[in-house]
């Protein structure tokens, strides 16, 4: 975890020109895939991710049926060409774990009791990966779920923070993710103020833990505004989904 080269300049500028509290450029679009019941596409820095939802539909195999609510399934998957070295297309242990935490991050927002005995299938396909693909995937999947008309309590938005050169910074890019000393993806329901995903790695003093967590939540609220606009644009042709970062500091 030793940092050989500096990732933040003395002037406080990061490898991609951002400051500590700035997000990468973000673009979202709802309803790209015609066959899916709901879909969304997100670009989050260099991440390019497509999410799709099928359902509610019948459960296979039938013994998996839940009598009182929908069965939620989720697959997070990375394309072989999404990373520097070709990735074996078979699901890795990392992808299996991320599929589970994404499902658990989205499930609290779904009113699954409205769809007993049914299945809701969520797909998150990473076409190009940069740092923070799981949180960008959650943001897109949440849009796809609402595009599919699934009853929801709130949207779910994801954002990460971390530690780079000993400093707490928002939204790590690939280099910062690999060479920095900590990464903290967070997902939450912004209106209900409930955290649905939290993963931590790296070394955090109790003070930095609190700072990083709060920063990820602050960043998430900025992403939420863009998420809302993307939905409004799809259904009401409202303001453009591409929102400049200038609004926040």
């Amino acid at each position: 975890m030793e940092n050989k080269k500096k990732l933040i300049s003395d002037a406080g500028v990061r490898t991609d020109g951002r400051r500590w509290n700035e997000l990468r450029p973000i673009r979202m679009e709802v309803g790209q895939l015609k066959n899916a019941d709901g879909s969304a596409y997100i670009e989050f820095g260099k991440n390019k991710i497509v999410a799709a939802v099928y359902g509610p539909k019948e459960v296979h195999p039938k013994h998996m049926v839940l009598p009182d609510r929908a069965l939620i399934r989720c697959r997070y998957h990375m394309a072989p060409f999404s990373v520097d070295e070709r990735k074996n297309p078979a699901p890795s242990r990392r992808e299996i774990e991320i599929s589970k935490v994404i499902r658990e991050a989205l499930e609290p927002a779904l009113i699954a009791e409205d769809y007993p005995r049914a299945a809701i299938q969520i797909f998150v396909e990473v076409l190009q990966s940069d740092g923070g693909s799981r949180v960008a995937g959650i943001t897109a999947a949440s849009l796809a779920l609402s595009d599919a008309g699934i009853n929801m309590r709130d949207l779910v938005v994801g954002c990460s923070s971390g530690i780079v050169d000993g400093q707490v910074v928002l939204d790590l890019n690939d280099t910062e993710d690999k060479e920095g000393s900590g990464d903290m993806p967070v997902a939450f329901m912004p209106n209900l103020n409930q955290v649905t995903l939290l993963q931590v790695d790296g070394i955090y003093t109790p003070e930095n833990f609190r700072k990083a967590f709060e920063l990820a939540m602050t960043g998430g609220r900025m992403v939420y505004e863009m998420q809302r606009k993307a939905l409004l644009e799809k259904y009401f042709g409202a303001s453009p989904s591409e929102t400049a970062m200038e609004e926040e500091e």
Binding site: E107, L192, V195, L198, Q199, V200, I203, P206, F209, F213
Partner: peptide, 23 residues
């Protein structure tokens, strides 16, 4: 006494205050 790893699990939630309580 640094926090060096963490994972929230199950299809439920924590409030931000509960996360700090857990820490």
């Amino acid at each position: 006494e640094n926090i060096c790893a963490g994972q929230k699990g199950e299809a439920g939630t924590f409030t931000p205050a509960q996360v700090m309580e857990a820490a």
